[in-house]
Amino acid sequence: MSLIERLGTFGDAKVWYDNIPLESEYTVGIAGERFLRAIKDRGVILGTVCPACDLTYVPPSMYCERCFTQLDEWVELPAKGTVYTFTIVTRSLDGQALDEPEILAFVKLPGAHGGLVHRLTTAKPEDVEIGMEVEVVFKPQKEREGSILDIKGFKPT
C-alpha cells in the first residue's frame, strides 16, 4: 500500500502541482474550408461524392477513405434528415446536473452515407424518437462565423 492510500490528506505527502499548458489552433483543412464557408455564406450543407464507391461524404472529405480517390465532385444536400439515434443528456462534462436536458442526435442526411451529430432543438425529450424527420436550423446569417455551431441544431419538421 502506498503512502498516499494510508494518508488522509495529500498535504502529508510531497507532491508537485503542474499542468500541460497548451492551446491549439486547428485549420479546418481543404475540404473543411469549403464546407464551413457554404454554411456561413449560403446556409447549405455540402458533401463530396466518390463515384467509384458510390458514397457521399458528410461532413465532406477531400478523399475517399475506401479507395483513396481525390474527391472533386461537390453536392449540395437537403438541409434535413432522419434521426438515426439520439440521447438525452442530463449531466454536464464535470458531472453537474443540467438546468435543461440536452438532446443530441445523429441525423442521416438523404443522399449521404453518413450524417451529422448535433443538438435537437425545440423538441420535448418525450417526443423524440428514432426515425423522426428533422431539419437544420441555421443561426441568422450575420451571427455565423464559419463554425459547426453556425448550425443551431435540428428541429422536428
Binding site: Y26, T27, G29, A31, G32, F68
Partner: peptide
C-alpha cells in the same frame, strides 16, 4: 511552417503520392 491542410489531409497527400 503552416499548412492549411488538416493532419489527415497531409497524410492522404503523401500516401497517395507514394501509392
Amino acid at each position: 511552417r503552416r499548412a492549411q491542410e488538416t493532419g489527415r489531409e497531409l497524410a492522404y497527400q503523401a500516401t497517395k503520392m507514394a501509392l
